[in-house]
């Protein structure tokens, strides 16, 4: 059990400022194995910045991050092995084919050469990319590019999957498929996703945290909200609008 601690992400007191502007202020975040956490917030609330800090793309001004018990700041390479990350803009080399790109992503994550073929077949099947492996990424539609981005994030079967607005640019059918995929991923790993869409959150997440102006303002399990018969929309309005008023 020591190798697989139950808490996959634990971030405490995470702050980040850009010059004098404070983008994220003292955010605590904890994610357990098999949990899907939705990060909700208006534009510019600091969701993407938080995610960048959790994946080692941005160093926090203060605070600590542990991924599966490994300190991300002290031992980044070891910690990053457990993370799969889909940023806001999918990081795609558009001159490559889907297969070439995923092969590169697999190698980057230290997957054995002998296993690459089977891993690729599996991940393509999971993300619905089986028939387009030979196509150039630049010729794919936005939705398919998004799927390639997701495939890249889960190719090494990470324990922590961080998705920044995964359903942007997808059509309703694809959104449904992606939601099923996220639920499935949430069984074996823990998933952190950010979104603007409340219905998406309600359908896939176990827990929701709301951010506003860099501060974590709300944290609750969705089942709890349902029990108390509270609507997420009301809560969202209450916490983000109120802060906007007092903020001004």
């Amino acid at each position: 059990m020591n190798d697989f601690p139950n808490v996959t992400i634990s971030a405490y007191n995470l702050s980040r400022s850009f010059g004098r502007h404070i983008a994220v202020h003292r955010v605590d975040l904890e994610l357990k194995r098999g949990e899907v956490l939705g990060l909700l917030g208006p534009n510019g609330a600091g969701k993407s910045t938080t995610m960048q800090m959790l994946t080692g793309n941005l160093a926090p001004t203060s605070g600590s991050v542990q991924i599966c018990g490994i300190d991300l700041l002290k031992n980044p390479r070891e910690a990053k092995r457990h993370i799969g990350y889909l940023p806001e803009n999918p990081p795609l080399y558009k001159e490559l084919t889907v297969d070439e790109y995923l092969q590169f992503a697999a190698r980057l994550h230290h997957i054995d050469l002998s296993r690459i073929d089977s891993v690729l077949t599996e991940v393509k099947q999971r993300c619905g990319l089986s028939n387009i492996g030979k196509r150039l990424i630049s010729t794919l539609s936005k939705g398919y590019q998004q799927r390639v981005g997701i495939a890249q994030a889960i190719i090494h079967q990470p324990e922590v999957i961080i998705l920044d607005e995964p359903s942007v640019g997808l059509d309703p059918n694809q959104i449904r498929e992606i939601r099923i995929l996220i639920r499935e991923l949430g069984k074996s790993s823990s998933v952190l996703l950010s979104t603007h869409i409340l219905s998406e959150l309600e359908s896939v997440c176990d827990r929701v945290q709301i951010m506003n102006q860099g501060i974590m303002v709300f944290n609750a399990a969705l089942a709890e909200l349902k029990q108390k018969n509270l609507s997420l929309e009301r809560i969202f309005e209450q916490f983000t609008l109120r802060n906007e008023n007092t903020g001004n």
Partner: peptide, 14 residues
Amino acid sequence: RNHTMTLLISAPIS
């Protein structure tokens, strides 16, 4: 520019 640096930095390499 193409935001692909994120892929490299997020990967477990130095």
